[in-house]
Amino acid sequence: MNALLEIRGLSKRIPSARESSGERVLLHKIDAVIREPESIAIMGGSGQGKSTLLRILACLDSADEGDMYVRGASCSSMEPAKWRSQVCYVAQHAVMLPGSVEDNLRTVSRLHGTVYEQPLAERLMKQSGLDHIPMKGPAGDLSGGEKQRLALIRSLMLRPAVLLLDEVTASLDAISGRLVEDILLEWHREEGAALVWVTHHADQASRAASRIWTLKDGTLTDSELSCESGISDETAGSVRER
């Protein structure tokens, strides 16, 4: 059976004035597999390439070498729009599209010419505590936390197989952050979508993920995480450095 998402030999170099060669290896021949819908946390110190890896996986940035596969189909042989419909990236800072709250929720159906799933949108809005906001009001007027939750619901309307979450709770207060976490974990359980979180918080990784990918010096270390064992010392150390 094909893996849900597979990364093979992914490398990325970035320009660097500090290196004599003028560039730095950010990711070096990374291999990783998500075999079934599971929740994975990506951790590591600043500048280790966590967000870059996520953007490459979302087909928003390109790798210098390697390829990625979703359910056995390679990214390089697939239309980028088709790839992104299955592997959806959610940015740290939510961007509201011009128009109303409802316009934002309808984006996916508008782009793909599909039926707007109103009951799903209403259920998610209620779960996220956004059922009080006027649907016809401008999305740009919402608070930061509300925008982030709306952006998340907008992505969930796509029903992607893999959700790439780039520090989606970093700019939220504790309560909103937990709310977002709960929505995503419920979605993961109910809809069977894989979650890949970039996070700096060890406690969030313990709560939300079953595995941890640690990025350090261009390499990725994959480690299992059980509820009892918590985060390994090495991984936590790389987080504490911050």
């Binding site: 979302a58 729009a81 088709k82 990236y89 940015a91 961007v95 782009l111």
Partner: peptide, 20 residues
């Protein structure tokens, strides 16, 4: 850029993302 990449992330084609 944020708006365009958001649309791309939602599976938009380049033409759709550049419409606005």
């Amino acid at each position: 850029r944020g708006e365009i990449e958001t649309l791309l992330s939602l599976g938009a084609s380049g033409t759709q993302a550049m419409q606005g």
